[in-house]
Design a protein around this nucleic acid. Structure first.
Lengths: 238, 238
DNA sequence: CGAACAATTGAACCGATTCAAGATGCGTGG
DNA sequence: CCACGCATCTTGAATCGGTTCAATTGTTCG
């Protein structure tokens, strides 16, 4: 029994849900097996449990299997800043390659969030023998840079919120989930922290978008009613 | 005659000024020669001249030899956003790997800015045979992600300006220039655009820092008088 | 059911932007 | 070399958006 399920255009690893937008596109089944061999068994995290601490020595990168993780960095004044949210199928820990130490602590947003780890040394070694894997890794890193840039230019609170929703929408779509209906599992204050604004403003902006008919929100579930208008608001072409 | 000058702890390529903080650390002389072979001859750019246009098909990455380049992205509303500034020895174009198209247009800030190009396909191929080069590339990308994150949490205009100055300071230092005295060659409106604030606010914040004795500014030359206090202001540990 | 926490709403306040004016610097040509 | 004109930078005053603080409503869980 192989642990790999091949669907129309993508390979998906049973261990970590990595798919073509995450890692292994262009990899043969044999390549995939090699990759799978170095993926370690996954671990279940409780709500607010940290995967590792900022400052720890870097040796592994992680893939989210289920749930949501947020990466939190502590500044010199002791304030926490949320750097990003990580959805199922996405990786975290890549930003630590440069300095050799993790720069932020990933914590589980939802209870029973699951992630698996990959030893970076082994991954790196494997990439040397698999050019397509090397290319995938470069693409992934490039993507991170790409999206950290695309948020630039969202100046007003309304734009930031619209951009945030759209970003999640796109990422869910890439992983095969609905781009217009998904759970907004992180608390308002975390969204506010991530977008560098007050929680109250997050509330007000959500309300405005709901009042304008662009969104519907019931409990933690969000429905996008007008994707085009939302895109228009952000001013981003993505 | 070799075009490589080896100083105490770093290899430096005569063609593009790449040094250990840019690319080739851990490369042997023989490796370096191979890398050098794929570096194309450099080109001189006039002020405001673009290296390539956003949307162009990606095939090369670029290294700054002298002068400063700024990368400009156009949003859907036709507004220009400056994504970053690139100093001598730094690379640009890496964010295009992901999508296969450049997402921003690099333009020369100063007249007679010089950059050289490297074919990404060839670089990628070379990296397969040189593990240390592959690692370098990953480090570089990771660094970009790292620093795009480190600016998060700079909320007030004062913090943004302090962080901007410190970021330049650190980058100049890494390339062997003075970290406390350098030219601020980009116009105020470009700094303002990059930091998403009004040019008037940039003026006011610079004035405040000068009045507090942290900086001295004469013409385009900036001197940092109190690096520690400046770091303290940003709240960043870097 | 009630307690604790999260989210919303309202009103005063503050910081950054905007608009308008003035100062400074810089290149050009007399 | 100085005078002019344009562009950039600076400064001031009014306005606007977002934050802060306080109170209320809503939600979750023992």
């Amino acid at each position: 029994m192989t642990a790999i399920a091949r669907s129309s255009s993508q390979l998906r690893c049973s261990k970590c849900s990595l798919n073509k937008f995450c890692l292994p596109v262009g990899l043969t089944n044999s390549d995939m097996t090699q990759l799978e061999d170095i993926i370690e068994t996954s671990k279940n995290y409780q709500q607010n449990e940290a995967v590792y601490q900022a400052g720890d020595k870097f040796n592994k990168i992680y893939a989210v299997k289920s749930g949501i993780f947020s990466t939190v960095a502590l500044d010199a004044n002791g304030n926490e800043h949320i750097i990003g949210f990580h959805l199922p199928g996405e990786l975290f820990g890549l930003d630590a390659i440069y300095s050799g130490r993790y720069i932020s602590s990933p914590v589980a947003v939802t209870s029973s969030s699951v992630a698996c780890s990959i030893d970076y040394q082994e991954l790196s070694k494997l990439a040397t023998s698999l050019p397509s894997l090397q290319n995938q890794l470069m693409c992934l890193m490039s993507k991170e840079v790409h999206f950290s840039h695309s948020a630039v230019g969202e100046t007003s609170a309304e734009q930031k919120i619209a951009g945030f929703i759209l970003n999640l929408s796109m990422r869910y779509q890439q992983r095969g989930y609905s781009p217009t209906r998904f759970q907004l599992l992180m608390p308002r204050k975390d969204i506010a922290n991530y977008l560098a604004m007050a929680p109250e403003t997050v509330s007000r902006m959500f309300k405005r978008l709901v009042n304008n008919g662009l969104l519907t929100i019931e409990q933690s579930e969000i429905t996008i009613n007008d994707l085009d208008k939302l895109k228009q608001m952000t001013g981003c072409d993505s």
